[in-house]
Each structure stands twice: as C-alpha cells, then as structure tokens.
C-alpha cells in the first residue's frame, strides 16, 4: 500500500480517530457540528495567488519513487507532461509512456530544462515506491521523470481533476482513459493528447507556447 508519511501529523490523526469513535457511539447520527476545514491533510504550503484552474490547489499528499513525501505544488514553475498509469498495465500504459518519451526526444536539451515528466499511479495498492523505482528502471526513465502514488482518495481526486476515467477490474488491473496532459508553470491544464499513437505536433506546439 502506498504509505503517506504522516510523521508530522500525529496529533491530527489522534483527533480524527477519537472523533470517529464518538460518532459511532452516539445514538443519533445526525451531525450539526460541521467541522471547519475538516481536511485531514496538511494545509498547502504558502503560495502566491494560484489560478482557480490550477491543479496545485489540491492539497493531497504524495510519495515519489524515492520515498519522498511531497505535494503537487512541488512541480510549480516548470512545464509538466503528465499521465496516469499503473505499473502492471500490459497494453495501454507502456504506449502512453512511449508516447511521452517520443515527446521528450522531440524537444531540445535547452527546452527540456523547463520541462518535467510526471507519472501518477492509479493503483495505490500495488504501486508502492519500490515498484515505481523498478518501473522507471525498466523504461529507462531519466532523472526528470517523477513517479508518484498516494492513497485511494487522493488518487480518485486527481483522476477527476484530470478527467481520467478509471475502472477497477477483478483481475486487479484497470480500464482507463489514455491521456497525456500538459500543465503550465502555474499548474493549469493547457493541453490534452487523447489516445495513443496520435500525432504529437499539437502537443509539442502547446509545450513550446509555454516556454519562456
């Protein structure tokens, strides 16, 4: 299971657990005591005013293939090429990664200085950091590639923000949409490439439009 590093959030954990116990023990389940800012997550780090459309408005916690705890704002300031995949995927995801690599090889070294690549796992149960590392080795992904995982809820949330449809199968795999997204430096989705083996000219154009 993709474990979030909660070491700095113990107090909030205790509070949440105790509150849940109280709920269960109350005979009435009606709750007029709506908590304010009831999120279990750490508030997002101080940011300059973000566009309402920015993905970096999400405060969800993520872990990288190197076991680093991060939030998505970590990627702010660079152009990000993003896709949701799962490492045990046999057909589509390898194609998506290959398409992203094709985009990478079409860009110059100078251009790539402003660009990062991000793979988000839709399979928190199996795609733990060690597995993500193994995957990136298999595909010879360079240092500018980050692979992240989180809990089920954060995964669902990011999928919905990205508009990616995901259906869990009995086999443990997934049916899902195949999309490569381009985030601006502010985290706004400015382009989506749907399906694979499509012409990447539009995507390259969108990326180059953002280069400073």
């Amino acid at each position: 299971m993709c474990k979030i590093n909660f070491s700095s959030m113990k107090a909030i954990i205790i509070l949440s657990v105790l509150t849940t116990i109280v709920f269960i023990s109350c005979t009435s389940k009606k709750d007029t005591g709506v908590k304010s800012c009831c999120s279990k997550e750490k508030p997002a780090a101080k940011l300059k005013a973000l566009s309402g459309e920015s993905v970096y408005n999400l405060a969800s916690p993520w872990v990288t293939q190197n076991n680093q705890s991060i939030q998505l704002t970590r990627f702010e300031g660079k152009i990000i090429i993003v896709a949701m995949i799962f490492t045990h995927c046999e057909s589509a995801c390898p194609r998506i990664v290959a398409d992203m690599q094709r985009i990478e090889s079409a860009l110059s070294a100078k251009e790539l200085q402003q660009i990062d690549f991000l793979l988000i796992s839709m399979d928190p149960e199996r795609d733990i950091p060690a597995r993500l590392t193994e995957f990136s080795r298999e595909y010879k992904l360079k240092l500018n590639w980050t692979l992240i995982c989180s809990n089920k809820d954060a995964t669902m949330e990011i999928a919905n923000v990205l508009g990616v449809r995901v259906k869990k199968l009995d086999s443990g795999g997934f049916d899902h949409s195949n999309i490569i997204h381009v985030f601006s430096q502010e985290g706004v989705i400015i382009h989506q490439q749907n399906g694979f083996a499509v012409e990447q000219d539009e995507t390259l154009k969108a990326i180059r439009n953002l280069l400073k």
């Binding site: 057909s91 449809r165 869990k168 795999g173 049916d175 899902h176 949409s177 195949n178 399906g195 083996a197």
Partner: peptide, 23 residues
C-alpha cells in the same frame, strides 16, 4: 468516473481501444 463509454453507445461491445485501455 468508472463509467467508461465514449459518446457512441452503439459500438460499445468492443470499445475503441485507443481511447480506453479496455481489459
């Protein structure tokens, strides 16, 4: 969001495999 169809509801017995990875 696990409702995966394209707008085309008639050919869904074999979904377009490039839009959806359809195991």
């Amino acid at each position: 969001n696990n409702a995966l169809t394209t707008g085309e509801s008639r050919g869904n017995s074999s979904l377009d495999n490039t839009f959806f990875c359809g195991g």
